[in-house]
Write a protein that binds this DNA or RNA. Sequence first.
DNA 1: CTGAAAGCGCTTACAG
DNA 2: CTGAAAGCGCTTACAG
Lengths: 348, 348
Amino acid sequence: MAVTIKDVAKLANVAPSTVSRVIANNPRISEQTKRRVREAMEYLGYHPNYNARSLANKSTQTIGLVMPSSADKVFQNPFFPEVLRGISTKAHEKEYTLYMSTGSKEEDILEGVMGMVHGRRVDGIVMLYSRIDDKIMTFLQEQNFPFTVIGKPFALPDTITHVDNDNYRAAKDVTEHFIEKGHECIAFVGGNLDLVVTVDRLSGYEKALREAGIPHNDDYVVHVEFLKEGGQEAVMELFSLPKPPTALVVVDDLMALGIMSKLDEIGLSVPEDVSIISFNNVMLAEYASPPLTSVDINIFELGYEAVNCLLEKIADPDAENKRVCIPHKVVERWTVRTQTENGIENVK
Amino acid sequence: MAVTIKDVAKLANVAPSTVSRVIANNPRISEQTKRRVREAMEYLGYHPNYNARSLANKSTQTIGLVMPSSADKVFQNPFFPEVLRGISTKAHEKEYTLYMSTGSKEEDILEGVMGMVHGRRVDGIVMLYSRIDDKIMTFLQEQNFPFTVIGKPFALPDTITHVDNDNYRAAKDVTEHFIEKGHECIAFVGGNLDLVVTVDRLSGYEKALREAGIPHNDDYVVHVEFLKEGGQEAVMELFSLPKPPTALVVVDDLMALGIMSKLDEIGLSVPEDVSIISFNNVMLAEYASPPLTSVDINIFELGYEAVNCLLEKIADPDAENKRVCIPHKVVERWTVRTQTENGIENVK
DNA sequence: CTGAAAGCGCTTACAG
DNA sequence: CTGAAAGCGCTTACAG
């Protein structure tokens, strides 16, 4: 069997409890015995058994991650590696480790999450997405288990600590940007309406139009599954309209790529015929042709802060729930042009 | 405190050991008491504590994942969500859960892995990449800890169970495909030479050339970091050559996208001026303009099989190490054309 | 500053 | 078919 605290204790001529204390670096142990014990640990190649530790002190030093269903198209979005990077970074800093949900149906994932919390496998959970009426979120809240969500919880956002962008504001900015450039036929291509981020961005878009006195046109709002296939559908719908839009607010970079590829196919060019701004500013945006103007939502930061908040919550479960807002910034590249009565004026 | 096996035992009027047995569905317990115990569990809302269980029976039902450094560009490759999907699927089937490495320097990751194995946090590990002289792989092997790698271990591949494509063959196929189409100036754009996959594909490429009697040209082999930036560098190098290539074997789809975008910039068109075949057949390949001809390496399957093998290994640690080879298939789209003395013949 | 003891919540021979 | 007991490897009051 592996070497245990007892073996170390014996060799160092102390009690197991003393060994435990030097592991915890308890200040009440003399430097001398600490040294002796440490030598023994070194010599024997001792490593603590985390299961035993967790069982004894009721803390696991690990946080659970709830991803969207791996069957879901969203899962493929480069958003996830990037949030993961943020999450992983903060977790590593604080010496927490990561536990991942599995399963491809919501039921299965929920079961897994129940296992995490009831089985005491994790100290807290971060949800990497936020959708309306999510059973997992509901469960976590019922259990009063420490958790944090990336995105805005739809119901009772004040009850749940979350980190999000101001997606309403961001979409409004983007839409206003188009308006300033002279566009009036501005369409919104949204993703799954279950995703809170979609509804927030849609309201921002609508608000900007209203403020500018541009009548809302139902035909200009289309919702498709995230990702590229969706982009293509969107093009079919929008550009068979009698009066197609000249500018597109697209909720996701990948979708925008899909749109651009389809546009190309039907002989329309970006930005000459249609301008596009999308969201996320994923690496790919820069390498599209032409490079995509996109809203950088600081994905890394979203992940980083989400575990930061979670850790605070674990340390003090009764602390007030908070909302942290990660700033966004539109990164201008080459998919927006000024709209004039007839034809190209300049490309910006 | 949470409800434990003792509470259930008391309510059901049996010994804790009996409860434990009905949880394990031990056939020696009568159906009657099983029912009684289950009712008690249901009534009390009992859930087993996994830490206690793991401690007692020395098995965690979880597998550890070693990802490349999150700081590494490779991490962003859509390859990873897709392997993860395969991994997650098989793990879920067998009721295993997933544990993830964190950290961005190799040192840190190694430390994390040491924690996993020594701390008995996982029953086995799958490495999601394979690079030359990898400390983590060496460690795992020294410890004789059950693990499996996706890709081919560089040293002593017979000693380590792994699942891989026949990358040598695949690259050879692709190169021969170009040769059949009349190309002679065929370049190879590889990734990081530390990655075993790069060296395998390079040899396949070289072999095909040799067999066809095409002299090897050092200038036609360039290595850059995976992903898009790399693609752009590659273009600069290759197309400032006195005699630039007419066909490109590109080791990764994203890199190919970068290449295409750069080619576009300098006024060369695909496939008219240069043909491209890349690897992975990631979703994006289909939506490039023009859609990329790419080698589908069955990423999902790689992940799925990797955990399958791992589970076998955990069940029988002394079983022979094996290599499973996942088939590949080139998916023809629109980036390859037949090369003639002068100009376009047909696009295929 | 250190030790003896109890306990964390399970599982698993051993007995009957 | 079921129970009593020991044990998995730690931690943490309690005492001194």
